[in-house]
Design a protein around this nucleic acid. Structure first.
Lengths: 201, 201, 201, 201
DNA sequence: CATGAATGAGAGTTCATTCAT
DNA sequence: GATGAATGAACTCTCATTCAT
């Protein structure tokens, strides 16, 4: 521990600056993807936003792919922060979680846009799939755990298939930002509420 | 008259050949998008697959955008064919419809992949949004109609919000192909089944 | 003669239509060049303006070059119509001619624009040079004839170099439409008037 | 400090090399335009002449238009160098200036060819017009100044309209290279001499 | 004569990546 | 680490021309 700390402290000046810059690049790329999708991601633009030369970017991320993977990791981890913190009875947890997600969707819809982009890309890119599906599994497991606990405590009927219900929840949330017209965002809100009603009355 | 007719026939042969070509191009582009996404769509490749010079492609579709729009129209219309043909009692219709979609998903998952790509692109491209959202609305309306009929006939509780439930259904279906790992496709299957259970017991 | 006439008469229905169309194409090309220069001349556009298919254009003019040469001939001949019709005393003729040119420049500046384009192209294209320089010579000769007649009649000093003065006149007229800003068009008007003053007081 | 200076020197070496490249590209484009006009300007060819990849050209000039504007600036500035350096009495200045221009025309007729191309293009391209007309104005003003000074000193009659005469001079010079046949170049020489005779006897 | 279809050559432009400094 | 310069591969799109019908 001490060693690790010392090392961290020791390297901090150079390393932290480097990490900050890497993080700044990831953030800029993240925003760019939210706005224009992977299709619109340009390394020169990202570098410019962070205020460095585009060639310098390659010191932090050797290839475009490497930067993208960092963005994928960042996005999935941000979602993970939303997950897992809730407490209380299972039904209560679920309600709280839905609330958190609805908040997040309103405050920062870009996260869900990026996650959808990531999902599409994961279909084609195994490296990204590895990162994304791991996170999806974790999320799914989170819901399963709550649902099972709820079934045990009688919150839900023993007939409820926890695995299936968790899948549905994840599916709905994942599709939530797919279509972004005002009309559709109303639709998506309705969908989430309906899910809640089915599950937690 | 006969001559004129013959000419007409003659023309229609040429026209049909031309339309076939255009359709072949749309199909090739459709498959390409299913495989690699919009990001991986290359006009030269499409032309090559159809067996024509890439310049000839511009004879049928003046710009890449025009070709893409044709693909979007084709994909949404293919989905539309699945919708609407069902008969019987509302709950039965819904069940039949879910079955059709599950079949389609297994027989031709590419359709749903393309539709998701279209959904993403619709966020940024108004022309595509116009095509896609129109179709989404039609689909949503289709479910609302069934659900309302079912509520009237007592298939579902009067408490069920038809609009919201329809939104949920569309959301789940739309997200169904987002993650395509074998594991996840099991998940999506589960999600659809869960939906069915909630709705039609 | 009779034969020629008969042939002309005989062919007139088909031939005249054909010639009309060829003429229409030349006119359309002429206007296009006046607007956008040779650089902006597109066969498809010309054909469309005349209302025929672009492939059909090649029945009238086998190549783009052939059409351009026809335009060059047309433009130089239009200028020739302005030249040569004047009558009266030499100084009077010159004055009248300047007046005509000033009129033409105001009524149809495009002619002079096209002629300048032709002049530039003649530098590079021998076929065009042959057409254009022949006309320029004719024009120059026209001024020389007037000036010499005027010198004989005492309108101008015997010191006046008719050849040189004619060259100056042609040069000024040719440059007249080169720069087209409002300011410049004032300048060009001044230049013509100054020439007149020098020559005819 | 020395280090910093060295760095500055170092940088200037790189900068100078870069500027040389840019200048070389402008020169190559200039020559190309002189030979084939704007119509015949091909970026790949220019890059090849300078010995770089055509993509590298875009490092120096982001678009073709930018390169063209640089050529326009270069050509007008070269002409400007001829203008303005003369000394002595007005009539003498004018004579000297005509001599300079005649020299320049013989030594490097391409400058005048390019300037004419620029003039044509200025009609359609506002950005080029801004550059070119500014230079034309400067040139015109130069002649006006000389002529007015000459009128004051009695070199020319007070009747001479300095503005108009200056316009004529500019017009003649501008048209000088329009037609380039040997015959015509004799004509242009004559035109310039006639102008001189009218003005400075 | 007229046309839609097809083509080849080539245009300007983009962009991730590499490399010497 | 940082940078400007350079590159190659690929992109979409244009256009005069040809040809079968």
């Amino acid at each position: 521990m001490e060693d690790a700390n010392q090392m961290t402290v020791h390297k901090s000046e150079a390393t932290r600056k480097s990490e900050n810059r890497a993080q700044a690049l990831v953030l800029a790329a993240y925003n760019c993807i939210a706005e224009k999708g992977f299709e619109g991601l340009r390394l020169r633009e990202i570098a410019e936003q962070v205020g460095i030369n585009h060639a310098t970017l390659h010191h932090y991320f050797p290839t475009k792919e490497a930067l993208i993977q960092a963005v994928v990791l960042y996005a999935t981890q941000r979602l993970a922060q939303t997950v897992g913190a809730s407490e209380g009875a299972p039904a209560e947890q679920l309600r709280a979680h839905f609330k958190l997600i609805r908040q997040q969707m309103q405050e920062e819809p870009s996260l869900f846009i990026v996650l959808t982009e990531v999902g599409m890309r994961a279909q084609r890119d195994p490296a990204i799939r590895a990162i994304a599906s791991q996170q999806a599994e974790r999320w799914h497991a989170f819901f399963v755990k709550i649902l099972k606990a709820g079934i045990e405590q009688g919150d839900w009927s023993a007939d409820l298939d926890a695995e299936a219900a968790a899948s549905t929840i994840v599916a709905v949330i994942q599709s939530i930002t797919l279509i972004n017209t005002k009309l559709s965002s109303v639709r998506m809100e309705q969908a989430l509420q309906q899910l809640e009603r089915w599950l937690v009355g």
